[in-house]
Structure formats: C-alpha cells, structure tokens
Design a protein around this nucleic acid. Sequence first.
DNA 1: AAACTGTCTATTGTGGATAAAAGACAAAAT
DNA 2: ATTTTGTCTTTTATCCACAATAGACAGTTT
Lengths: 292, 292
Amino acid sequence: MAKQNTVFKDAFNRCLKLLAETSSLPSEPELGTTLGVSRTTVRAILTRMEELQLLAWDKRAKVVLRQPKPEDYYPAEETDSLSDIIERSFMRRILAGGAEPGMQINELELARDIGTGTTSVREFLIRFSRFGLIEKRPNSHWILKGFTREFALELTEVREMFELRSAASFAALAPDHPAWADLDRIETLHHEILADIDNRYKEFSELDERFHLLVHTSSSNRFIVDFYDIITIVFHYHYQWNKTNARERNARALEEHLDYIAALRSRDPARIETACRRHLKSARETLLQSIQ
Amino acid sequence: MAKQNTVFKDAFNRCLKLLAETSSLPSEPELGTTLGVSRTTVRAILTRMEELQLLAWDKRAKVVLRQPKPEDYYPAEETDSLSDIIERSFMRRILAGGAEPGMQINELELARDIGTGTTSVREFLIRFSRFGLIEKRPNSHWILKGFTREFALELTEVREMFELRSAASFAALAPDHPAWADLDRIETLHHEILADIDNRYKEFSELDERFHLLVHTSSSNRFIVDFYDIITIVFHYHYQWNKTNARERNARALEEHLDYIAALRSRDPARIETACRRHLKSARETLLQSIQ
DNA sequence: AAACTGTCTATTGTGGATAAAAGACAAAAT
DNA sequence: ATTTTGTCTTTTATCCACAATAGACAGTTT
C-alpha cells in the first residue's frame, strides 16, 4: 500500500467527538480548520459518516442522525502515523534490547521487524540522527552510540547553558507578554497536582515538558528551542522505563519548579540563576541515576 | 538507474594517482583501506585498470604497465555524490534566486530541476532541516525561513556560548594533549598566510574552519561539535557570495586568531575570554554586514 | 460580496525494485 | 599463522509507482 490513511482515521475519530456535541456540523472549510486537515479529508470524513448513517449530508446541510457508538471509531492503533510507530519501535529496541554502544543498526532488518518499507525507516534514522544517539557510515550501516553516561552529561551540559540563558531572558519579557499568563496557568497546575500528589504524580512528566519549553521559548532562538526536542524525547522515554520513586522525585521537582517560577516572577537575576541551577542539578542527577 | 557509481569513479581517480607513483599496487585490502572503499570496489577498479591496459593483474601481482593519461580519469562531474549535487543546487537556488522568507519549497519541482528522484531530495531536506533554515509542514510543503538577520543573530548567539565554553576547556587540556600540536601547526599556517596575504588570503576560509573546529572539539561535547556543522555550511556559502574586502577582513581575522591562540597558550581564563569575544564579535559583524 | 461546494490537479508519503557497494567466509598463497 | 584472493550474500542508495492528502479554481448558494 502506498500510504496509510491515518490522517483521515485520526481526524474522523476527532470529528466523531465534535458530532457528539451538536446537532449539525459546520461548513467544510471550517471543519478543516478545526481538525487541521484539508477539505479533501473533510469530505472523506463526511462521506464515511453518511455511510455509517451518522449524518444526513446534502451540500450545506449536515444533520446529525444519531450519537456515535464506540464501534464507529477507528481503533487507536490505526490512527498512529508511521513515523510514530517507527519511533516507538526503535526506542523500545535500543532501550530494551541491551543497546550496546557500537552496535550496528541495519535499515533493512529494522524495516522487516517493524513491517514497513525501508524508505520510512531511513528517513526516521536521518531525522533521529540529530539527537546524537546514532551516527551514519556512508554507504554502510548506522552505529548506535548508546544512551550512555557521556551522552547524558553532554546533553545536560548544553541544556544547562541554554536554560540559564533562557531563564534570564524570561525575566526581561514585557509584563504584558503572554508568557506570563502561561506561567500563571502552569503554576496553578503545579499546586493542583501537589495537593493530590498520590493520585496525580504521573501528570508531572507532561507538565515538566510544558514548563521548560515555555522557558526555552522565551529565548527567541530557534536553535535553543529546537534543542529542547532532544530533551523532550530523552525524558519522555526515560520516564517510561525508570519509575522508581517516581512519586517522591516528582513531588520534589514540583517544589523546585515552584521556587523557580517565583524566582522568575521576582525578575531578580541572581535569584533566578540560583533556583534554575538547583532544579537543573537535581534533574541531571535523576537522569544519571537511571543510566548505569 | 538505481545508484550512481560515484564511489567507484572517485576511488578510481584517486587510485590512478597512486598508480602514477609506483611500479606495482599493494594487496586488495590494503588498497581498500587507503582509498576508503570496500574490496568490491577495489576489484572493480583493478578490473577497469586492466581493461585500460594500465595494469597487468593476476592475483597478487599487480604490475603497472604505463602511466595514466588525462583521458583515463573520469570527469570531475561524475565523481560528485548525489547529495553534494543536491546541496549545491539547493543552496544556489535559495541564495541566488531571491530567497524570500516564507517561500514554499516543493520536493517534486526541486527533484525535476536537479534531474533526480524525489527520495534523494526529500532525504536532503530532512538532513538540512536541522540547520534551521527550512521547516516542514507535515503532509505538505516545506517553508523557507530564509537567511535573515534573525537567523544570523540566533546562530551567532549560540556559537558564542559554545565557543566561549570550548575555549575555556581548551585551556584545561593536558600539556601533552594532541590538540596543542594541532594548534602549533595552525598557528604556523597563520604566519605563513599573513606573510603573503595578497596571494594567499583565500586560504583563510578553510583555515578558519579548521581552527574553530579544533577549539569546539575540545569541549568533548557532541552537541557543541555537531553545531559547528551549521557554522561551517553558513560560512562556506557566505564566503562564496560575499567577497567584498575579503583581503582586509581575512587579514584582520588572522591577527585576531593569533591573539586568540596566544591567549589559549597562556591558559589565562580572563585573557582567553577577552580574545575570544573580540574575535567572535568581529566575525558576527562580518556576517551581519553581508545580509541586509 | 462573501463563503461554500463540486471537481480537478499537484504533491507528499510509502512500498517495491534494482544497481552499487559493503562485507562474510572458505580456500589459497606466502 | 597471517594475509590474500575468489565467490557469494546482504545492505544501501536511488528511482519509480500509486494511494492519501493538500490545494486550486470555477460555479453555486446565502
């Protein structure tokens, strides 16, 4: 098959949710904007909804006939984009299956394993190579450099440089800059999670990403912001396989964040630097502990 | 055609030069190591040399029959790898052809223009995207973000952070570290070029890259070293299209380098920082001047 | 007049095919 | 006992084909 229609399936599922809330759907261009897809895909969705007797569709009239049932949705496995599937599969392989540094990575084998074509695997590897975990030998295989202690140290060294600089520039943002409002919302969430930490500590990972990305974004430097992708992916998979003391670690990090946020609000450079350094230091330690 | 045999042609040309200097060629594995290709390619080269009556080849005996003539070589255009061709072609397009920021980049059109398949163009764009000059809209085109003033400022901001840090760590290298010997050689070249600046100022660009890469490498941080690729490509193409006052600019930069090198030797952090900052500042100004 | 729909075209994403290049292994030579 | 060669298999680099998706334009509706 040439291309999976995952964009269609995912948008269809999201459109079902919209449909559940109204008696008629808006115009095709409007739906396209809402769902983030082209009109071609919108029309495919409407056609499918008609087939399923969910909708009576005639030109502008899009009347909802019945509520969607669970079986109307496409299964979640079919809505993942191929690159996500390859990423997950690859990460599992290199993290789970004893990823010896120096190991060779074989495009063909990986493709067979995942059940996909080589082109997609190749493109994934090229994209992934910017994370510094693999390296290409031209006309030959890729080398896994491994998720080693050195990797973590190099990563955190740059992270710390970038985040200190970003935090400093955050303090210089105009008082009416929208980032301050974002910061408020993020702070509120911190308090909410801390208040019910036993049940909600798992929400930390996502909040952590959101907070640090906000800080990095204030640097207005694409290289700094882009670098945060590496942090994100590393921590994302790191949280998935290192769950020891997650509750305690997350509670502590939340407290550190609150201190860091207060420092940002104070706009006092010295205080910001202290709070930022303290938090980054403990983040680094957490990461390092999970490695050896 | 599935794959151009540029590896073979390029290695063949290089092997002709080796052949010109001896009466017999070494073993296949040894040749492979020297030329940086596999035995398969070495054997293809030897076969071709036999056809051209350059060599009498029987197992271990590889007797040179005659000196290579100019027409024995493959033309230079045929030895460039496809990715180099695409890179040059792309850079010419976006630098020469009024590269408006926000312009769309079309894979198919680019491929037709260069006379190649879409896959190779796509892979090039993915690799190139890490330089922050283009950005992908999934399921749609690429956007050219343009070689703008902002780009240059963001690039130099990170460069300065990285280079200051690398320079500081350079001073901490053990006295017997090979980098010091490299530094000696680089310094000597500086003096040689300065002594004959009117004729040799064009050699600066390459020497500049070599010097800064050496400094960056001492950081032992893959992210810092990899980032230098961006600097390299930007300055490489920048030097090609901005040649005003090249002699003066290069002479000044060479002097600054010498000062910077002396500072590194002194191992005095304050002096290093001063020299490094001064040079980076003038490099930034040169780059910015070429933009608007 | 502005927004929407019908229809058509162009481009992207992905699998498959194939030549080039790498590389494995046993037999042969030093 | 290495190193080299002969032979064969595997993998990479690249083109091509085709479905999915985006997008353009004219005609239609409000």
